[in-house]
């Protein structure tokens, strides 16, 4: 991660911008946006898998993917707004991409609200998975369709075809790939670390419940209970 930070500062500034040095924010802004979409897609995939086999691990992965997607979308918003303030003169421009990302953030927040509001009931996973699947087409629409709508595209300042048209400098492409893959690996590590912790917690909880079971549900226990006086210690 330190190497990625150094690499992003070593890249030359883009002279076509008002503040060439701040154009380097793209090394963090673009990967965060792409990774948030990847995690949202993963969330949809795990939601579908959960509905198929009701496996607890898929439920945890689904919730974690949504959390990571929200985190990355927030970072995209922050870096985008910073760029907008410096290069275009205002924190908020009503730019198509900016607006669509804010709406995406609303979508993620609603899913997180539902996640937080659900108690550990039987239908928790099913409701969460269904809602996350319902959010998937909306998320895809906001990222891939809405910014390209004819009436919206006309008013956009956001550069969107730079990579496709090969307008990136070689240095920029290399640094972008390096920083992007570093962020992705860090996110994935964080994801798997939290997944392991949550899985462990869940197993611990299940074990605790299982240990209580013979006393609560099984009334025909084979164990003998002998009355012991309080003074009878060793």
């Amino acid at each position: 991660m330190i190497a990625a930070i150094i690499a992003s500062f070593m890249a030359p500034g883009a002279n076509q911008f008002q503040y060439p040095s701040l154009a380097r924010i793209i090394f963090w802004h673009l990967p965060c946006a792409i990774i948030s979409v990847i995690f949202h897609l993963r969330c949809g995939y795990f939601a579908y898998k959960y509905l198929q086999n009701k496996n607890d691990s898929n439920e945890i992965k689904m919730s974690l993917s949504m959390e990571m997607a929200s985190l990355m979308a927030s970072l995209t918003m922050i870096t985008g707004m910073l760029f907008s303030r410096v290069q275009w003169g205002a924190w908020w421009q009503w730019d198509a991409r900016q607006t669509s990302y804010l709406m995406l953030l609303f979508l993620f927040t609603a899913s997180l609200t539902l996640q937080a509001g659900l108690s550990n009931s039987n239908s928790r996973g099913r409701i969460l998975a269904s809602y996350n699947i319902a959010t998937l087409p909306i998320g895809l629409f906001l990222v891939f369709v809405y910014p390209r709508l004819t009436q919206v595209m006309q008013n956009s300042f956001h550069p969107s075809q730079t990579i496709q048209q090969g307008l990136f400098d070689k240095n920029y492409t290399f640094t972008l790939l390096f920083v992007g893959s570093t962020i992705f690996i860090t996110c994935y590590k964080l994801f798997s670390l939290k997944y392991r912790v949550l899985l462990f917690e869940k197993e611990k909880e299940e074990n605790a419940t299982r240990n209580l079971e013979p006393y609560s549900s099984n009334t025909t226990s084979t164990h003998m209970v002998r009355p012991v006086s309080l003074s009878e210690k060793n």
Binding site: L107, A110, T113, A134, T135, L142
Partner: peptide
């Protein structure tokens, strides 16, 4: 609660 959940799904 249903309003909170509906609004983001109604964006498009």
């Amino acid at each position: 609660y249903s309003c909170v959940l509906s609004l983001p799904l109604l964006i498009p």
